[in-house]
């Protein structure tokens, strides 16, 4: 493993982390501010990918599709809030898990009925075709750099929103102490609707952005959801800053672990068992890291909740 390859892998890790952040940002807001376990966040990500793909195909432009997917996923989020989530705020987490799991089943089937079960194709926009050569024989696709940029921009905008606007102050207050916020006369119902819509839109944006590099298919949100939960638990539930750092950490651990471990294991084991053990442990590494971090900081890196 050369230093050059190591650098490329680190970049890959950061890039994967940014993608995770796009998904996790909405999840941490909804979980942190509203205290609702939203398992359906993954299917909102999937909806974003499908809507982005269909709208891009209908308008003939990836960018127009992406732009239109935002209000479309926002509308889906608002609808879900009014139909389902509104009735869950006062229930315990078990009821929320059951209900949002139901939303997963329903939406996955709905997507299969509407779009079929075969994966969809989403072309990379012409503007971002091609790539930059990072090492001999390997191109780094421009589109992945665009994802990096989009993730950083989202992080920046969210930071501005959360830290420097009145709505952001309410968000932070909601994440920190909800009953006090309600006691102060803030309309929490409207705040929650707003937060949930924003969360759905962020998930949809992540899905639409990921569509050209990942397979757009029913159930695509399920595998992302688990990593997104790992990210927000490590970052501290409700903290956007925590989610950002945790996403980068998870991305790096995941990619570097997967690429380095099999080689490291070969120092102590025969090649064949080393490969399999390395691959197996590599895929567990994220969860091991989560366990270690939670052992030291049980409330995550940047806990948002007071008390």
């Amino acid at each position: 493993m050369t230093a050059q390859l190591l650098l490329v892998q680190a970049l890959n890790g950061l890039q994967f982390g940014i993608l995770l952040f796009l998904v996790a940002a909405g999840l941490t807001l909804v979980f942190g501010v509203m205290d609702v376990i939203n398992l359906a966040h993954g299917v909102q990500y999937m909806l974003g990918a499908y809507l982005g793909a269909s709208l891009a195909a209908a308008t003939g432009s990836f960018w127009l599709g992406l732009l239109l997917a935002l209000p479309a996923t926002l509308a889906c989020g608002l609808l879900l809030e009014l139909l389902v989530f509104r009735h869950l705020y006062d229930r315990d987490h078990l009821a929320q898990v059951l209900a949002t799991f139901g939303v997963i089943l329903t939406l996955n089937e709905a997507v299969t009925l509407l779009w079929g079960s075969a994966p969809l194709q989403v072309a990379t926009p012409a503007l971002l075709e091609g790539g930059v050569t990072l090492m001999p024989g390997l191109q780094y696709p421009l589109y992945r750099l665009a994802i990096l940029a989009a993730g950083l921009a989202t992080a920046g905008l969210l930071w501005l929103l959360v830290e420097h606007t009145r709505a952001g102050a309410l968000l932070r207050a909601g994440a920190s102490n909800r009953p006090m916020l309600a006691a102060l006369g803030v309309d929490t119902g409207r705040l929650f609707l707003l937060v949930f819509g924003l969360g759905a839109m962020l998930a949809g944006f992540a899905g639409a952005m990921a569509a050209p590099i990942l397979s757009v298919e029913p159930g695509m949100g399920d595998s992302v959801l688990i990593l997104a939960f790992v990210v927000i638990v490590i970052g501290g539930i409700g903290s956007v800053r925590g989610a950002f750092l945790a996403a980068l950490l998870v991305g790096l651990v995941e990619v570097l672990g997967r690429s380095l471990l099999p080689d490291l294991m070969r120092l102590v084991l025969a090649p064949s068992p080393a490969r399999q053990a390395g691959a197996s442990i590599g895929s567990m590494l994220v969860y091991i890291a989560m366990a270690l971090i939670l052992a030291v900081r049980p409330r995550g890196l940047f806990p948002a909740r007071a008390g």
Binding site: M135, G137, I213, L214
Partner: peptide, 23 residues
């Protein structure tokens, strides 16, 4: 080289870099 990836793998960039490196 033989690389085994998790069944739910989304992003292959790490493996692709390895392939490029081993030519």
């Amino acid at each position: 080289d033989e690389v085994y990836v998790p069944l739910n793998q989304l992003d292959f960039s790490a493996e692709l870099a390895k392939i490029a490196a081993s030519k």
